[in-house]
Design a protein around this nucleic acid. Structure first.
Lengths: 152, 152
DNA sequence: TATTGTTATACTCTATAACTATA
DNA sequence: TATAGTTATAGAGTATAACAATA
């Protein structure tokens, strides 16, 4: 019955209505597309989305413990180790023994890390501006983000 | 300088503005949330999002080649093999030699696969209705999907 | 030569268990 | 006992190369 109401299907065209109508499917495709563009844009800086988030979060919250930074980003502390190791090795971040708890590492940006983040922020702001433009301006962006939050 | 304009930061609160303001970040969080809910909803049917898409696509395009179904969903044909093997083993789909090309597999739903998809579609429609409700109705959904597409 | 399905493989992301040193 | 960091490991998802059968 459904087939009788569907348009004719030649060799080159597939019916995709049943799948592409799904909000979750479109959401996934958009997310993958934005992430791929993000990674392409940040390729020159050799910075992944999660790494950018970590640097920005440390910059705004210097001295916080690894676990706190990881948790706020939804990264398991076990998986956070390799990520922060990479940033440390590049001289962008620094682990110091947390005062008052010798088990914990307090995280800081190095001077180089702060300079690097400045550059990355410039790139990110341009990327964000492109997203806002695609969405149709700041009010449209706000409405969009509100709807994203409603889906969480 | 940036720190002087930021509000005071007690032990329990981290500054997350710099990261959570990012459209791509919010998009990722929403996508993960929706996908997790989708998987939880479909757990009883033991069906993953990609598997649902494959079944629905085969139902609307019976007899298509593996590569065609895979490509339209953005799945590499090498990775599609294990997915369709699983559906085959469950008796939901069937591979027949494509007429006119003995290299190719034409994909079909079995009778059981069609019945199974009917059930899955019921669950999916309820899930979709919940998404639409969260977004604020069908017009809001349409606006939302339009904005998702603009990001692609 | 090119394409279809397939296998093998590798890399990323994510999740859990278990260890160590501290608390 | 519990927690912070770490290691090891396993599972998804995704990417490429190469092969046999067929075009």
């Amino acid at each position: 019955m459904a087939a009788s109401s569907a348009p004719a299907n030649d060799d080159a065209t597939l019916h995709t209505r049943a799948t592409t109508e799904i909000v979750g499917y479109r959401l996934r495709r958009a997310q993958l597309s934005v992430f791929q563009r993000f990674m392409a844009t940040f390729e020159a800086l050799n910075l992944r989305p999660a790494e950018y988030s970590v640097l920005a979060l440390i910059a705004d919250n210097p001295g916080r413990k690894q676990t706190e930074i990881a948790e706020i980003l939804g990264i398991k502390r076990a998986n956070f180790v390799a990520l922060i190791n990479g940033l440390d090795r590049r001289g962008l971040t620094e682990r110091r023994v947390a005062k008052g708890d010798r088990r914990a590492n307090a995280l800081y940006l190095t001077a180089e890390g702060a300079r690097f983040l400045d550059r990355a922020r410039g790139v990110q702001e341009a990327f964000e501006a492109d997203c806002v433009e695609r969405l149709g301006g700041t009010e449209a962006r706000d409405a969009f983000v509100t709807m994203l939050d409603r889906l969480c």
